[in-house]
Simulated assay, not measured.
Amino acid sequence: MKSLIIANGSMDDYDFYESIINSYDCIICADGASNHAYNMNINPDIIIGDLDSISDKVKKYFIDKNIEFNKFPSKKDKTDTEICIDYAIDIGSKEIDFIGVLGSRMDHSLANINLLYSLLKKGIKSRIINENNEIYMTDNKIQITGKKGDIVSVIPIHSDALGVTLKGLEYPLEDYDLEFGISLGISNVLVDDKCEISIKSGCVLVIKARD
């Protein structure tokens, strides 16, 4: 099962998001993200959270549509997005994509990016998508598809990434140790329609930029 979690972060180009919505088995809204869903004329399968950010008009609209609500207390140990992840896993999701998880609140943005790590450790494929980026995380091997000229950055997280090999990029690497905190992996370029990133030890963010 492939699920989409919509959070209440920045979403400026609704046409872009509407173009990808139909590829999911389950659409899960985190609280105020239901306002985004309403604006895109999308009916989520469930709305989860403390429901303090959803407008009264939108809440009534989805109640009338018989959309399921799962209300949690406002004081809790997990963000609404993380609670949505728990639900997605419980229903058997093997792939989880996120939209609306980046925005002006850097603490929320960083926390949401780090959620990719917890999913990686659970063996669940995940990525963050917005109008300008696709964000992945790997501690082993990943293939990124796109078009020639797309920008791909490989960024070590937590610690050094050892034995990094990059294929299909303008600046390849072979069994190279990427030091944490160094910008060597930024702004590489696809030379064809796909590339492959592999590492022997550590973990990296892989970001394909649209601009």
Rank of each mutant, 00 (worst) to 15 (best):
K60D: 13
N112T: 10
H36L: 11
D175F: 13
I207E: 01
R105H: 03
I144F: 13
K2M: 07
S55H: 11
C29Q: 00
N66A: 00
V164K: 00
L110F: 14
N133C: 15
I67C: 14
P44L: 03
N43V: 12
I157K: 06
I20C: 08
F69A: 03
L120R: 09
K94Y: 10
I91L: 04
D31A: 01
D12P: 00
L115H: 11
N41A: 04
F180G: 01
K122H: 00
L120A: 11
I42S: 01
G123P: 03
D25C: 09
A7L: 10
I207H: 09
L166P: 03
L169M: 12
M106D: 13
I199F: 04
S109G: 10
D31I: 05
I83A: 04
V206Q: 01
D50G: 00
C195H: 00
C84T: 08
S3H: 12
I128V: 15
I21A: 07
F16C: 05
I128W: 05
N188C: 09
Y38Q: 09
S23E: 09
L4N: 11
R210F: 14
S198P: 13
G123C: 07
I135S: 02
L102F: 12
N66R: 10
S201M: 14
N22E: 10
P156E: 02
F62P: 02
Y87L: 04
S53F: 08
K57V: 15
L115Y: 14
D175Y: 10
D211A: 10
S34Q: 08
S74T: 05
I91N: 01
V58F: 11
G32A: 06
D15S: 15
L184C: 06
I6M: 13
D175R: 13
E95C: 06
N130V: 04
G168F: 03
D139P: 06
E174S: 12
S159I: 12
K71G: 05
D52V: 12
Y24Q: 03
C84N: 03
S159A: 15
